[in-house]
Amino acid sequence: MTPDTEPRLNWWNRMANPGQFVAWTTPLLWPLVILTAVLFVLGFWFAFFNSPEDYQMGDTVRIMYVHVPNAWLSQFVYAIMSVSALGTLVWRHPMADVSMKAAAPLGALFTALALFTGALWGRPTWGTFWEWDGRMTSTLVLLLIYLGLVALWRAFDDQLRAARVIAVFTLVGAINIPIIKFSVDWWSTLHQPASVFRPDGPRMPMSILVPLFVMFFAFTFLFLVLHLKAMHTEVKRRRVMTLKRRLAQGGPA
């Protein structure tokens, strides 16, 4: 007689099986790709053909449509990584490891793009590519943290062990980012008391808000698609590593 040893699985536990996760989320991929593409086409059309210039900033306001979504993603991706880090540490959820690893390079690129567009926006607006103001400086620090995390992932041989260690560091970073932001704000107002241009300062008319929202969702969905795809790849990479180890040991006896 065999007792019922099969544990009852809810969706959360079933997601813990990497194969199941890939099988379940693969059908989502193409609809998300199409949605992202449509949003981008719409966003570019709004940005270049159907939005007025700002009375204050002129046409440079159009840089905002790519700058603000990237700046948002730079923080959103870190939030995703922090939640995944909690998933790794508290529930030891295997997909949380994979999500953390897949998100780090994406976050680094979006942060770099936020800095790049910010610099190109700063040149006509402030007259300089780089200003040590609170926002740009803390974004730069965030980029350094992302790059540190990417480097950390690459430095570990054993990815399963790496996940828990990196989760600890990710959460330490998450606690520190508000402190860094606060200290950098304090520091920059100290050194240049003159008020700098703030993107969210003046109230924006609908004609600017609509393209901004479309681009915001386009970039967010782009991240979701790429994150999902990178997670699938990471699942396969782990399978590759397991197989390689097994083959190197000459196969099971």
Partner: peptide
């Protein structure tokens, strides 16, 4: 395409950079 004004270079490069990235 509409006229991008005096700072067209910066706008275009911002979009090109983001697209390349």
């Amino acid at each position: 395409m509409i006229d991008l004004g005096p700072h067209a270079v910066f706008i275009i490069w911002a979009y090109i950079g983001v697209m390349l990235g």
